[in-house]
Amino acid sequence: MSEELTKVTHIDNVRLGDDERSVVIIDQTQLPNRTEYLTLRTVQEMYDAIKLLKVRGAPAIGICAGYCMYALARQIDTDDFDYFVTTFCRYKDYLNSSRPTAVNLSWALNRMDRVLDRGQGDEDLGDVLDALGDECRAIHREDIEMCRAISEYGLSLLKDGDGLLTHCNAGPLATSRYGTALGPMFLGKEKGMEFHVFSDETRPLLQGARLTSYELQKAGIDVTLICDNMASIVMKNGWINACLVGCDRIAANGDAANKIGTSGVAILAKHYGIPFYVLGPTSTIDMSCATGDDIEIELRDPEEIKNKFYAEPQALAEVKCYNPAFDVTDHSLITAIVTEKGICYPPFSDSLAALFAGDK
């Protein structure tokens, strides 16, 4: 693998601080013009980092949440086990309220919480802290393995020279290694394959423009940035062989929540007969959520539409805005869902359930 490709695919975007009482992240709101690292020490700083998208991408949020809970646990100065648990749970609930749609946040927080359940009866805080440290590192390690597996499965659906379209950002910055939706592109590049990728800018926060095109360009992958409303014409022109997107939550029937605008891409792909693939870890599959109608959609500040990235407001102050962060792509529009355990095809209610058939 070339040095430049390694720098992109193995970026150290979330890690535990050396003191193990803090978390260090790349501030994704500053990219692509500045690479700035933030050290998060307080629960408020951690909440704000997730809420304000300084760390984003469902898997990366999960990794960050695990490290945050461990760092905060080490800051709880007490020998009283009950007080420790009460404080820990208060921190957990607060972080969990930062972003409601991405299931990896609650998934990681609940994993850390279960460590406390296993510690009940022992009540040796030193052992509990060690176990929490092991768990947060396991979350990160498993994500690295997951990204590689998803990339391999996803790559099996592509061929050398394909034109690909992606929406939002599901690369290394959103995960730990390679990424989910972008993973096959990076892995293919590593294996000598060439793709031409069209990256939707992804309004209103421009993750596709600021992050996806940045990652692909730095890796030497042929990328063309397009406005969101240009997806139809590049499909009609015959330039797209497949669409690859990530996901923040997948319902039991295969409905998938992803960054706002994703469902529109899926509808266009269906019209033009282009495969539409959703790539994500099994941790984003919420089998307790029957359909996409049960997924809570995060609503964000209207000022992101009117003011963000503009020197002057682009609408009158009194104009109302509707700013959902996500939409849900109906399972009927999805060709396949790619996970680290394999590729799921319709009917997704059966194939997704099969992924968890052996779990207790």
Rank of each mutant, 00 (worst) to 15 (best):
C168F: 12
T180I: 03
L155A: 04
L182R: 01
C247A: 15
A174D: 06
L125F: 05
M235R: 11
C227G: 05
M193H: 14
E190V: 00
G183W: 09
L157N: 01
L132T: 12
A219V: 02
Y214R: 13
Q207H: 09
R210C: 10
L182S: 03
E190H: 13
E145N: 06
T175H: 05
G192Y: 06
S156E: 13
C147G: 12
I150R: 03
E194K: 15
L125M: 09
E215T: 05
M185A: 10
T224M: 07
D160S: 12
S151V: 01
L129S: 07
A231L: 12
F198M: 13
G171S: 01
A170G: 11
D222Y: 13
G163P: 06
I139P: 01
C136K: 00
D143W: 03
L205M: 08
S156C: 02
E145Y: 00
H140Y: 10
E142I: 00
A174F: 11
W239P: 08
L225V: 14
L216K: 05
A138F: 11
L173Y: 00
Q217V: 01
L155Y: 04
E142L: 12
S213P: 02
K159H: 15
C136E: 03
C247S: 14
F186Y: 11
S156I: 01
L182H: 01
F198T: 12
G163W: 07
A138Y: 12
L206W: 09
L129D: 01
S232P: 05
G154K: 12
I226M: 12
L187A: 09
G133M: 02
C136N: 02
T166P: 13
E145V: 05
